[in-house]
């Protein structure tokens, strides 16, 4: 019962010089986009930058990214057997790849 999602992921450390890379991710129905990203880090590219803590509970609220241009939590958005475009939040400072500065300025270690 394995399907395949094409994850088209924005990569880079600067908005101007970033690029998209597309990966195929096998999944079972019900799995989350975060499951797919974690699979990619182990099996394809350990350098893919993503932010998450609680993995599954949707308690930490750290894994917020954009899916097809809409802000979602990667842990609750589901993988689908189609091309899914993943980009960092556009309204937050970029750190790298899918990671942005989502903490309020008073809780950041920089700036």
């Amino acid at each position: 019962m394995t399907d395949v999602a094409q994850l088209k992921i924005w990569r880079g450390a600067h908005r101007e010089t970033g690029r998209f890379e597309t990966y195929e991710v096998p999944f079972e129905p019900g799995q989350s986009v975060l499951d797919g990203l974690r699979w990619l880090r182990v099996h394809r590219d350990p350098t893919l930058a993503i932010r998450f803590s609680c993995i599954n509970a949707n308690a930490c609220k750290e894994c917020v990214i954009e899916l097809d241009g809409k802000a979602v939590y990667a842990c609750t958005a589901r993988l689908e057997a189609r091309e899914m475009t993943l980009t960092p939040l556009t309204n937050k400072p970029l750190v790298r790849d899918l990671v942005t500065e989502i903490a309020p300025p008073s809780e950041r270690s920089s700036g």
Binding site: C54, A59, E62, I102, A103
Partner: peptide, 15 residues
């Protein structure tokens, strides 16, 4: 107060 994750979000308590 520092955390490797975000403040008050990443520990076990929130879960």
């Amino acid at each position: 107060l520092i955390d490797r994750s975000l403040i008050g979000r990443g520990g076990a308590t929130v879960m």
